[in-house]
Amino acid sequence: MGKLLPLELKDVSLDLGGKSVLRNISLRLGSARTLAILGANGAGKTALLRVMHGMLPPTSGAVRAANGLDLQLPEMRKHDAMLFQRPVMLRRSALDNVIFGLDADSTQSSVAIGERALRRVGMLGLADRPARTLSGGEQQRVAFARALARSPEVLYLDEPTASIDPQSTRQIEALIADAAESGVTVVMVTHNLAQAKRLADDIAFMHEGRLTERTPADEFFSRPQSAEGREYLLGESI
């Protein structure tokens, strides 16, 4: 059992700016599975990801990590990591961007950890390049390395390939599969159904702030349980 998993959401609701974004969501995240959160724009996918990552406290309901620990505690951030749609690169080298994600800054061991992470994403050759001069796909790989360097138990991905080209998308997908292979639990939001099919073990489908179903991926794509899920897949197939 990890520090974070199993992660338990009980009856979680979230209001943002007077708008109900999440409604009564209950969800259990076990270990070593890849979960894709699907749904139309505005369904609350990204908000759910942020609640699970401890970035947004729920308005009501409870989010509990393993042993009932509070997910909002700062030390919980040592056990998960998140990749955003647009990689946020600090104004420094690729390697320093990776090292920035580690707790102890610029000691010999963190340099070694950073280099290992960059090698894993195939970016070691560009380690000394200023991160902002890299291409969008390269930046996302550096961001991936920054997440991996923290040895996260859970990796959250918020549309990680939405703003990069097909070749970079393939590379990122390979990295996701590789991370899942090595035992990292992946939770990803995506609009790319093919990508979800390729990568996900489970699908969580959201509609207007509600979780309408949680099904194994092959089952979701052949026989979605909820009416909303069926409609969504219908829309995608046109």
């Binding site: 420094r92 080298s93 320093d96 010999q108 340099v111 050759g125 380690a127």
Partner: peptide, 15 residues
């Protein structure tokens, strides 16, 4: 570009 030169980078920033 080689990994042997890299570790000095963070210290250069401090300087």
């Amino acid at each position: 570009m080689t990994s042997s030169t890299r570790p000095t980078q963070p210290y250069a920033r401090r300087a």
